[in-house]
Write a protein that binds this DNA or RNA. Structure first.
Length: 916
RNA sequence: GGGCGGUUAGCUCAGUUGGCUAGAGCGCGUCUUUGACGUAGACGAGGUCAGAGGUUCAAAUCCUCUACCGCCCACCA
């Protein structure tokens, strides 16, 4: 490949990805099942939260992959056998909704087909759509093991789900119960609690009179005629009145004491129902009396259980009133019925009040329809054992969370977890492997059987009929780490538990909690050692992205516009664990700029390498000029020290450091590498990216490369560039690989190279370069501060007794920049630089010096303020007493330095005065 | 009602166990065709770290309270 003037991601990304994939480097190195300890340590496993097989990636997936692939590539470079397992989700309900909508468009309904027909049709539908998502995952650069892609309906997934279900069935954790479930009348399926969205809405609270028919014997007060009294109930759902089986009042409520145990008449029906005492009734709310409808309200259901009340279902699964509501109302929608009931109540004089209120209403998270609590026979999991198992492991800290507080949140959640309804009335999913003895629902006997492809089976001469329901997708998803790693009972598996589970914080309960419960239950082990949760990616203004708001950002468009690496760098920027954060396109642009910068750094280094090769010199270039630098240390020898061998160097070009800039960059790169390792171990991706950014740009390009224009050291340029490429590769895999393959001296794929080892350098020499940088910066600053007319012009830099500058005059001249750097030979002139411990003059004409007076005064003031602050600190005896010694010393040194500096500046001021 | 988070530069955000002059990117201003890069280089302006109180030699950081913003759970007849 050739180095063009700028980096064009589109030209490299597809080919490079194909190269990676074909090389087989995405697959883990094979590890035999009979592994021992060292191999387990060697393995690094992470699974991809499976994106919807027939959907497109959204920006959250982009973040997910940026993080997971960075981890994978990092640990691969570190020599681990990495296994990043990709997945595809059948996305049960989501896909079903899309399909059903398509079906409706064609003028059909689900009820025209059998379940098996529908399943086959959706399968074909998904098959047609499939592939987009996988291409997009590739575009993002995910180095995942495509050979091991797991689809949530794969045979092994279904087999494991059935195995678990059977185990639970045998363990008595599965039961069939008639309970109230969250039911969407539009989709005609039940939901788990977490799939329901509650929203505050305006509604009405009606007051309806229930005439008192009788009171308990001992409460009869001869003075009053109870038959003229009535109990006024408050309700938001008058249409459920037909299902009322009692009226509850609070046992403490003085107003109704004498009615408890009595009977009231249920308007419009002629039925009488009892007045009961229950804590559920809040005396402060409404009238304090609440009608009890166990078949259509979750709380009432529980009240009904407590008081052993019947359940009268009056709303059907199609959302219309049943016969039980009476002939007049049967067949009406709940809405129509509500109107009619209110009208009738009013006419008959039962309606006593109407109030506007705000209350929360449950909606289907997909279509927004109001959730109807519905009495249904469903399969439930008794979660006690699962939750306890998970909680115990969490309390023992077997899983480390990022952010850490999520562990506590999860434990709280598990403590209050209710039994889990796993039945869904949609065909697109894994069939529940249960068969009933009778064709009807009436109290059948159930047997477990995995032959779910059959509607009817025969066991011991008896026919059984398949339950038509499918599993809640979270039930199978809970097995994800188990099925993706091919965990098998009794077999060692170095990839289970996973090293880390990375996903969105929003599915902590739905997924993470269930994976932990299931992992512990099925395998006896937690399914992963660490959990990293990322927050939501919000739009540029901090708003949640949604189709309805029209603020959705498509990651693939950004990839097309700026490149995959730019997107990855940008999306990680400023993001921390668990925090929702706004997306900033400018961060992606900054990422693109970094890629381009690195590309040009490499282009330049390659040029220097070619020049050196062309000169056919076997000697390191310019070593002679480097030798002119007395400040370079003993620094030398990259390869072969025993210390380095101990930490596992495989291949490293030999190099020597020839001047202080070189020692400095070796020190800085090594510091960067070590900090980076720490960042990765602690999942601090944002810090890692920032660190690389400044190291590459501010340090390597702006100082080291610039200094190399004076004294080049080709072997070191190669070593340091390689180091940078490797360090950035986890975050920007494409551009680093493209560079690696464009360089003349590198071989193979960057993605399978060894992580760099530390570079040795002379610390004193490195420190001297730092001092030189201060000098250069000061020269630049003063040059810029000069008046408009003279700014931008170059002057000579004169030095007095100044070894550092004397020894590096060429370098200073180039970096500053100044026309020349020469000794003042005891005859200082021009403007003295405000640097303590340096005797340096910018050789500007006298009139320019005079114009600098103002800036100088400002500077004296600023330094004076700093000095005052330091002095104040030292005046405090407690500070001197209690603060660490090194801080006190620093303060003392600072005072000495600044005092001297002010003296010089004041002297300068006097000199200027004299000059004018 | 219970819980969790946030408030730092014009914008989006870092800031680890309290300790150099509180940082970055983008934006803004001035200057610059330096042996790669204008998607660049040099320099700069810009902050009462939401407010009040406390602990400490020292607080953006720890504690208490207040205000505002956001999220989760439960309840809402």
């Amino acid at each position: 490949m050739k180095f063009t003037k700028s980096y064009e991601p589109g030209e490299f990304e597809p080919t490079i990805y194909a190269q990676w994939e074909q090389s087989g480097a995405f697959q883990p190195r094979k590890i035999v099942a009979e592994s021992h300890e060292s191999e387990t340590e060697d393995a690094y496993a992470i699974v991809m939260p499976p994106p919807n097989a027939n959907g497109n990636l959204h920006i959250g997936h982009g973040l997910t992959i940026a993080i997971e692939d960075a981890l994978t590539r990092y640990y691969r470079l570190r020599g681990r056998s990495t296994w990043y397992i990709p997945g595809a989700d059948h996305a049960g309900f989501e896909t079903w909704v899309v399909y059903e909508r398509a079906l409706e468009k064609q003028g059909h309904t689900r009820f025209e087909y059998t379940r098996d027909e529908l399943y086959a049709r959706v399968w074909d539908f998904v098959e047609e759509q499939r592939g987009n998502m996988e291409l997009q995952v590739r575009a993002l650069g995910a180095s995942c093991a495509w050979d091991d892609l797991t689809f949530t309906l794969d045979e092994n997934v279904v087999a494991q789900v059935y195995k678990t279900f059977e185990k639970m069935w045998k363990d008595g954790m599965i039961y069939r119960g008639e309970k109230l479930v969250n039911y969407c009348p539009k989709h005609q399926t039940a939901f788990a609690d977490i799939e329901v969205v509650h929203e505050d809405e305006k509604g009405k609270l009606w007051e309806i009179a229930y005439p008192l028919v009788s009171v308990p014997e001992d409460m009869i007060d001869s003075a009053s005629d109870f038959t003229k009294r009535e109990l006024i109930v408050s309700t938001t759902r008058p249409e459920t009145l037909f299902g009322d089986v009692a009226v509850a009042v609070n046992p403490e409520d003085e107003r109704y004491q004498d009615m408890i145990g009595g009977l009231v008449e249920l308007p419009l029906t002629g039925r009488t129902i009892p007045v009961i005492a229950d804590e559920h009734a809040d005396p402060a709310y409404g009238t304090g009396a609440v009608k009890i409808t166990p078949a259509h309200d979750f709380d009432d259901f529980e009240v009904g259980e407590r008081h052993d009340l019947p359940r009268i279902q009056v709303i059907g699964e199609d959302g219309r009133m049943l016969e039980a509501a009476g002939e007049k109302y049967a067949g009406m929608t709940t809405e129509e019925c509500r109107k009619q009931v209110l009208k009738d109540l009013k006419e008959q004089g039962y309606l006593r009040g109407e109030k506007e209120i705000v209350h929360s209403v449950a909606h289907c998270y997909k279509c927004g329809a109001v959730i109807e609590p519905m009495l249904k026979e469903q399969w439930f999991i008794d979660v006690k054992r699962l939750a306890q198992g998970a909680t115990r492991r969490l309390e023992r800290n077997e899983i480390k969370f990022y952010p850490a507080n999520k562990k506590k949140v999860l434990i709280n959640y598990l403590a209050g977890l209710k039994d889990w309804n796993i039945s869904r009335q949609i065909p697109w999913g894994i069939a529940i492997p249960m068969f009933r003895q009778t064709e009807t629902e009436a109290a059948p006997e159930w047997i477990f059987d995995t032959r779910t492809h059959l509607q009817k089976i025969e066991v011991g001469g008896v026919h059984y009929y398949r339950d038509e329901d499918t599993f809640d997708t979270w039930f199978s998803s809970a097995h994800w780490p188990i099925v993706c790693t091919n965990w098998t009972e009794g077999k060692e598996n170095p990839y289970y538990p996973l090293n880390v589970m990375e996903t969105g914080a929003d599915i902590l309960f739905a997924w993470i909690a269930r994976m932990i419960m299931m992992g512990v239950y099925v395998t006896g082990e937690v399914p992963f050692r660490e959990v990293y949760l990322h927050g939501l990616v919000l739009d540029a203004h901090g708003q949640k992205m949604s189709k309805s708001k029209g603020n959705v950002i498509n990651p693939i468009e950004l990839v097309a516009k700026y490149g995959s690496d730019a997107f990855r760098l940008g999306i990680l920027r400023g993001r921390s664990a668990g925090m929702n954060q706004a997306f900033s396109e400018s961060a992606v642009m900054a990422g693109r700029n970094l890629c381009n910068k690195l590309w040009n750094i490499s282009r330049f280094v390659q040029q220097l390498v070619e020049e050196a090769d062309g000169s056919s010199s076997s000697e390191p270039v310019n070593l002679s000029s480097a030798r002119l630098q007395p400040c370079f240390g003993p620094g030398s020898a990259g390869k072969g020290s025993s210390e380095d061998d101990a930490i596992g160097i495989i291949r490293q070009l030999p190099y020597t450091t020839g001047n202080m800039g070189e020692d400095w960059i070796c020190r800085e790169l090594t510091a960067c590498k070590e900090a980076l390792e720490d960042d990765m171990a602690n999942y601090r991706f944002s810090e890692a990216v920032e660190r690389l950014y400044t190291t590459i740009w501010d340090k390597y390009a702006d100082w080291f490369i610039e200094s190399q224009k004076m004294h080049r050291n080709v072997p070191l340029l190669k070593v340091t560039l390689e180091m940078i490429l490797k360090m950035l590769h986890p975050f920007a895999p494409f551009v680093t690989e493209a560079i690696w393959q464009s360089l003349s001296w590198t071989e193979g794929l960057l993605m399978t190279q060894e992580w760099p080892s530390r570079l040795r350098s002379d610390p004193i020499s490195a420190e001297n370069f730092e001092r030189l940088m201060v000098v250069v910066s000061e020269v630049r600053r003063v040059s810029n501060e000069l008046s408009e007319a003279t700014r931008g012009k170059k002057y000579a830099l004169l030095y007095g007794d100044e070894a550092l500058v004397d020894d590096n005059s060429l370098l200073v001249a180039a970096l500053a920049p100044v026309t020349e750097v020469i000794s003042c030979e005891g005859q200082p002139r021009g403007l003295r630089l405000a640097l303590a411990n340096h005797e340096l003059y910018l050789d500007v004409p006298v009139e320019v010096v005079a114009k600098y007076r103002e800036q100088l005064e400002a500077r004296i003031l600023a330094v004076g303020n700093e000095l005052d602050a330091l002095n104040a600190r030292m005046m405090n005896p407690n500070y001197v007493d209690k603060a660490p010694a090194h801080l006190v010393k620093e303060t003392r040194d600072g005072i000495t330095e600044k005092t001297a500096l002010i003296e010089r500046l004041k002297g300068e001021l006097v000199a200027i005065g004299e000059g004018v």
